[in-house]
Nucleic acid binder design. Structure first.
Ligand SMILES: [Mn+2]
Ligand SMILES: [Mn+2]
Ligand SMILES: [Zn+2]
Ligand SMILES: [Zn+2]
Lengths: 140, 140
DNA sequence: AAAGTAGTTTAGAATTGATCTAATCTACTT
DNA sequence: AAGTAGATTAGATCAATTCTAAACTACTTT
């Protein structure tokens, strides 16, 4: 019952994004969007999928993550040179990054006072304002 | 005269960082710190050095950039997965990132109203607060 | 100044995350 | 059921970075 509702939700998400509901996309969509917000890398999602017996290649994971991002289901967050995180929370918000663990956590938009953002230079538009607080385990 | 003063300054920088003043480090230090603030990648700096006849390998450029960063002469800025930028401005400030060009520009700290930053979780300390405004050429 | 030592540089190999290719497969239309 | 556009995949490829270990050099000690 839960399974079928989740299936229906995943199906609806793909349908409204104009993506064919393949076995792989359905499985990845469920992994990503069931449960709370997630910040995950392609490799992590691939491992998770295989671990659940979902037959999906790494190339397909990358394809799906990019398609989900293009259609607004995900957003990409860059905090670490050489690794991209995909965020299931596409609302405006900020991030806490645990440098040691390579883990991202949401900060609600109103948890930070942010004002007077400079206007974009002429001929440009602001694509996004990213605020990342990098924290590290305190020494000692 | 200018040459010798620049040499003296580069020498002093390395000395105070506890790094041996090798030909390569002196040359890279001059390229980085003479003139205004810079945001540069390892590959870019390597090209620039070779272009000026400085014999330096890419591995050494990476070594030097990391050593300069560890000793506080540079700071690393992550805006693009798969490419690291090194910033000669180590004062607190923010960035404008021109996505199309892959170019970083400084925003003075007081050009943005930033307040009420959440405290670091217990056991952690805030290593840095990064604010990046991503801009893109306006369509049309 | 010569010798000794620890630190530095380097070419080239290796690694990593990501993308590409082109052959196979599948969801949807007719 | 057949046809077609779209999707998946293994494996090759790529770009940035790191590693390795041999040669070199700055500095210290005689
Ligand atoms: Mn990293
Ligand atoms: Mn990129
Ligand atoms: Zn988030
Ligand atoms: Zn800067």
């Amino acid at each position: 019952m839960t399974g079928s509702r989740n299936f229906a939700a995943a199906l609806a998400r793909l349908k409204s994004a104009g993506l064919r509901p393949t076995k792989q996309r359905l499985a990845l969509s469920k992994l990503l969007f069931e449960g709370g917000n997630r910040h995950i890398t392609a490799e992590q999602l691939h491992v998770e999928a295989r671990h659940q017996g979902v037959g999906v290649s790494l190339a397909t994971v990358y394809n799906a993550l990019h398609q989900f991002t293009e259609t607004g289901m995900l957003r990409e967050v860059v905090v670490d040179a050489g690794r991209s995180y995909f965020d299931t929370n596409v609302d405006e918000h900020h991030h806490l990054f645990y440098v040691d663990e390579g883990r991202l956590e949401d900060l609600p938009r109103d948890s930070v006072g942010l004002s007077d953002i400079p206007a974009a230079p002429i001929g440009c538009r602001v694509e996004r304002v990213e605020l990342i607080i990098r924290v590290r385990r305190a020494a000692g």
